[in-house]
Amino acid sequence: MQWTASDDYGVTSQQVLLSTDGGLSFPTLLADGIQGGARSFSWPIPPDLVQQSLRIRVIARSISGSPGFGDSNNDFATAALSPVITSVEPNVVGARPAPLMVTIHGRNFYQGAIGLIGAQRLSTKLISDTQLEATLPSELVSSPGTITIAVENPDSQRSQPTNLIVLDAGGAAGPVITGASISGKKLLVNGIGFGDGAKILLDGEVQKKTVNDEQNPTSVLIGNKAGKFIAPRQTVVLVVRNSDGSLSNAFNFTRPQ
């Protein structure tokens, strides 16, 4: 936000206040003690502030302490953003008979946000607008498989899904995908147990230009030109097939915007 302020004897300090009722009152102090020469202020809008009738007031004080103020001319509004998951920790675990707590990292997590597996609501604790803790019941992690986790805010906006891999308690018997990303036209698939000559399957289609990464051949596969087949925000299913025919878990990957 920007403003102008002047006084014959100089402006010594300034305040910025917020109204949520169209300027009828300004109960919220956003900043105090702003230097007299400042004419702008950056306010990080809280992610859970969703209002239609917001206004700003700037109060400037002269050297004598006399105040003058100005309000924004029109209302402005803030809108809720969709939650976004960037990672889940841990994202690969062994099968177990007990519940599992995971930490979900991302952004735009509001008060009341919950972790979801399908339609099942998880016991969830909000740590911050970028972190949640969710507990998966024992029946979901007692056998090998891929669990798809999402976050839903109270306004019903839902994040893209991300995967948690549950391995057999004895360890992985074949390839396992733990993550994926796009770099230019390349699709990068991360995991464990990738054999020499392993191939990426994208929605069931073999990516013939798949190669093992030179530095990390058993944990990174590169699908040359496969990235161009995935549009922003599109979700695809990835599978890795080793040369012996063993298949990985099915991994849901959503390309970021």
Rank of each mutant, 00 (worst) to 15 (best):
G37Q: 11
P137T: 10
L140K: 13
S243D: 11
R107Q: 14
A150R: 15
A172M: 07
V176D: 02
I165E: 08
I114Y: 00
P83C: 02
Q131E: 13
G171E: 01
S142V: 06
V236I: 08
P154R: 05
G227C: 00
R107N: 10
T86S: 13
R121S: 13
V11A: 04
N224Y: 10
E133F: 10
D21I: 03
S87R: 06
V93Y: 04
G204M: 10
K125H: 07
V151C: 06
R39D: 08
T103Y: 06
R121Q: 13
S183Q: 15
S64H: 14
D75P: 08
D75G: 11
G227Y: 02
L18I: 07
G179I: 01
I45S: 09
L132K: 04
N74A: 15
L126S: 06
G115D: 01
A180K: 12
Q215F: 12
E89W: 01
D155F: 01
G22N: 02
P217R: 09
P67Y: 08
P90W: 09
P217Y: 05
I200S: 08
R233K: 14
V11K: 01
Q35D: 12
A77F: 00
Q257E: 11
A113T: 06
D244Y: 13
G170A: 15
N212S: 09
Y110P: 00
L136C: 05
L30F: 02
S138L: 01
Q14Y: 08
V58W: 06
S143E: 13
I45F: 02
S13T: 15
L188P: 03
L29Q: 13
K208S: 15
E133K: 12
I177Y: 04
V211Q: 09
N249Y: 03
S40I: 00
N212Q: 05
Q35F: 06
D203C: 01
I34S: 12
L247V: 04
P47Q: 11
S66F: 10
R233G: 04
G37S: 10
A134P: 05
Q207S: 04
A80G: 14
G170F: 14
N163P: 05
L140Q: 12
Q160L: 11
L30K: 10
H105I: 09
A173D: 15
L122C: 00
Q2H: 13
W3K: 10
A77T: 14
E152G: 07
A113M: 04
L116W: 07
M1L: 13
R158Q: 11
V50G: 05
V151T: 08
Q35V: 11
G195A: 11
V240Y: 06
F69E: 12
G191I: 05
R255F: 01
P44L: 09
N73S: 15
N163F: 05
Q131W: 01
E133H: 08
L116Y: 11
N91S: 13
L54F: 06
G197P: 05
G112K: 12
T130M: 05
G10M: 06
I149C: 00
L29S: 15
L136W: 03
Y110K: 13
P217W: 02
R61D: 06
D7G: 10
P154N: 10
I63V: 14
G118Y: 09
Y110Q: 14
L122W: 02
T12E: 04
V176C: 03
P83L: 00
T148N: 11
V176P: 00
G223K: 08
T130C: 03
E133I: 09
I34V: 11
T254H: 01
S25Q: 03
R55G: 03
T86R: 09
A98D: 15
L24G: 10
G106I: 01
G184N: 06
Q111S: 14
